[in-house]
Design a protein around this nucleic acid. Sequence first.
DNA 1: ATAATGATTCAATAGTTATTGAATTATTGA
DNA 2: TCAATAATTCAATAACTATTGAATCATTAT
Lengths: 110, 110
Amino acid sequence: MDKPTALQVFEALSSGVRLDVFRLLVQAGPDGRVAGEISAALDIPPTNLSFHLKGLAQAGLVTAEQEGRFQRYRANIALMVDTIAFLTENCCGEGVSCELTGIAEGVCKS
Amino acid sequence: MDKPTALQVFEALSSGVRLDVFRLLVQAGPDGRVAGEISAALDIPPTNLSFHLKGLAQAGLVTAEQEGRFQRYRANIALMVDTIAFLTENCCGEGVSCELTGIAEGVCKS
DNA sequence: ATAATGATTCAATAGTTATTGAATTATTGA
DNA sequence: TCAATAATTCAATAACTATTGAATCATTAT
């Protein structure tokens, strides 16, 4: 993953609203959720939700698919996994072990 | 890790300057770097660097220690590892495997 | 066709973030 | 003490982000 992509992902995740939306879509699984469902579930006004969904989509963290007059959103798990890989490669210096924290071995460079 | 902490970390990592600073400090290892070294290495004016170091410190991603008239900064690897754990717990839904991406098994809930 | 529904875009506003140069604080060295 | 050095804070500005309500666009149902 290149740096601009990583920055966009971090910026997208730096809002409580967007983090909540993304988590909801992760939990929703492959079916995702239409905008109205997200709006209702998280109690976010449609216009504000649109704003944040746009940011998430621009960062690539969610995809949008038209479904009649609904708009269905899904989490892009692959990008999140890539992001975790990016952080992993940037988080552990020489000889630093991640075992201490309960993260699986092999995750960090060390 | 709680949500406000995660949000602060993501916000801190959402600036190219701060990401560069953090990576530099990770590479520097336990010795860290004094502010002037960071400023010179990344070609960032001292006053702007102070601004971004403040953000990183507030998020907990770096620590600062006075050393004579210098200020030594170090990366907080533990917090980064916690952040990776946070993302891991929020990235993989039911039955989603991370194997595809080359991330070690056991990382995702699966 | 027309009305109703789902969602987005637009316009306005308030608040926040990034950057720069000048001023300030603190420590070291002559 | 006095000048020099390291770093931060302050003040000003420009740019961006978040939120809301009104308006618009597209699709569905009558």
